[in-house]
Design a protein around this nucleic acid. Structure first.
Length: 479
RNA sequence: GUGGUUUUAGCUCAGCUGGUUAGAGCACCUGAUUGUGGUUCAGGGGGUCGUGGGUUCGAGUCCCAUAUUCCACCCCA
């Protein structure tokens, strides 16, 4: 006997019902993306490692899935090592193996010989690469959306998978805050349509820089960001402890907390006074204020948007607005969406001074939230068949495939039970198991009269009708 | 990457300090009902106890390794 097959850690199969539900989320998002004028693109699952590495910080690099080179990937490595060892004048510090033996290989120094491709880690960096490569064909400002799987070699846990889908919308080639506003409205519209209770948290990297500048110094931005981002999780005390470990004095920490705890109507005025010595901080405040006030004045449905001055986000490339969306009910505490403005992502690939801003929906986490809160419509079923044709013998089968052809022509999803079985109960069992709402029963009498029995499997009622009447009956029936 | 946890029938789980042929509910199959399912009743099939070693007269139960699940940290959708 062969061993039981298994899946790679952190990956999942999806059954028919799960796929229907995932598509329901995807279609909802896509519809909104299109409504706001975004165009679809797709990029390969794999990118060159040179495209991916160094874009997500040190931690990010470790989480990249690397693809083994084809062919004799060890030969090049060995040849290189031998060549370097033969040349006495060469610096051996960074050799894959000082001894020249395979067992002494250093993983870090060897990797470039073994892998030159990797699975994409997100959709933003491949998008930046796409923009640079296609800059002459693209009409700027470019609004694109992209819904594809990404891979991270993280340890799986609740709401965290190694293969998951992101749904991104980005605008590149425009500095206007109108883009930030559009993206926030998209978040609100999608989560409202899905009935997911949500909150969009908004901050600005410039404000964080300003805070750092006022509290201790611009270069402390990362230390501050890293600590205060955990405020929700570890509380005031946790953040204070971490900051004093970084060498912040009690006065500095006190000042920091006074700044980030500004809330309510006066928050912007308060911050403008507190950050008056930081030009960049003031710019950030103005941006936030503009976004919040503009959205508040729109005739849209209410948008659950609030500023959160402790929001930092890890991805290193953000420079302006940063977004994060959380579900406000249920057991999924991690974010279901995130994004922000990046002023120079394409610069790394040789196209400087092009600003972009984007958001991402985490399909798998949205799914988990919706399942947790029972938000999927009952109309989503594994099978979309409306009618199962049941019969007793060969002549009934012949009648059934003909009837099915007519019903399908009328646009009704129809199945014919494929095998002649003695018991019609078995056929009805099949329909029940798949939640097929109607059965058409074809026997000797029905063939003679031309009026098969239409059975409503939900209600348990049945009546003899002509095929034409069956079709109008089903078409008028919404569920 | 660090720490903990889980794994027994298709599914959810029980199995007390190691002791003869490993259990339950649900699901499945057959029949009561050879033209009517979702209710009931009777019967039936199905597990080398995640994998590989070890301790023992004897291991689902104890030890080691490994995989896997879930959870926390780090980080993130």
């Amino acid at each position: 006997m062969s061993h039981k097959p298994t899946l790679p850690k952190g990956t999942r199969d999806f059954n028919a019902l799960q796929v229907q539900r995932r598509k329901y989320i995807l279609q909802t998002i896509e519809l909104v993306f299109k409504k706001y004028g975004f165009m679809p693109i797709e990029t390969p699952a794999m990118e060159n490692l040179s495209t991916l590495e160094g874009k997500y910080g040190e931690e990010g690099d470790q989480l990249l899935f690397r693809i083994l080179n084809s062919g004799d990937y060890l030969k090049e490595l060995k040849d290189y090592t031998d060549r370097m060892l033969a040349d006495e004048s060469m610096d051996r510090t960074f050799l894959p193996s000082i001894s020249g033996k395979l067992k002494d290989l250093d993983a870090k120094a060897s990797i470039k010989f073994l892998a030159e491709k990797g699975l994409r880690y997100d959709l933003t960096v491949p998008f930046a690469r796409y923009v640079v490569m296609n800059r002459n064909e693209i009409t700027f400002p470019f609004r694109r959306y992209q819904m594809q799987p990404v891979w991270r070699a993280d340890r799986p846990q609740k709401g965290r998978y190694r293969e998951f889908w992101q749904c991104d919308a980005d605008v590149i080639g425009s500095n206007s805050l109108l883009n930030e506003i559009d993206l926030i409205l998209i978040y609100a519209e999608v989560f409202t349509a899905l009935a997911v209770p949500y909150e969009i948290k908004l901050n600005n990297r410039k404000v964080l820089t300003g805070i750092a500048e006022v509290v201790k110094g611009k270069d402390q931005m990362n230390a501050i960001a890293l600590s205060i981002d955990k405020l929700d999780k570890v509380g005031d005390e946790g953040v204070r402890n971490e900051l004093s470990k970084y060498g912040f004095t009690q006065n500095e920490i006190q000042l920091l907390f006074e700044i980030i705890q500004s809330k309510g109507e006066q928050q912007f005025d308060e911050l403008k006074i507190k950050l008056k010595d930081s030009a960049e901080g003031l710019k950030g405040i103005e941006e936030l204020e503009h976004i919040i006030h503009t959205i508040a004045a729109l005739p849209n449905k209410p948008v659950n948007l609030s500023t959160c001055f402790s929001l930092a986000r890890g991805l290193t490339y953000y420079t302006g607005a940063i977004f994060e969306v959380v579900a406000t009910a249920g057991s999924i505490k991690s974010s279901i969406g995130g994004g922000g403005r990046y002023d120079n992502l394409t610069g790394i690939f040789g196209l400087p001074d092009v600003s972009g801003v984007g958001i991402s929906f985490g399909l798998d986490r949205i799914y988990d939230v919706m399942e947790d809160l029972s938000l999927f419509p009952d109309s989503l079923q594994a099978s979309t068949t409306r009618i199962l044709c049941c019969y007793f013998d060969k002549s009934g089968q012949a009648y059934a495939i003909n009837a099915a052809a007519q019903m399908r022509q009328a646009g009704i999803a129809t199945e014919v039970y494929p095998d002649v079985v003695k018991k019609i109960g078995k056929q009805l069992d099949y329909a029940n198991a798949l939640n097929i709402p109607f059965a058409v029963i074809i026997g000797e009498n029905e063939i003679k009269s031309g009026k098969p029995v239409l059975k409503n499997l939900t209600a348990g009622t049945q009546q003899e009708l002509s095929l034409a009447d069956i079709i109008t009956h089903i078409q008028s029936h919404l569920v």
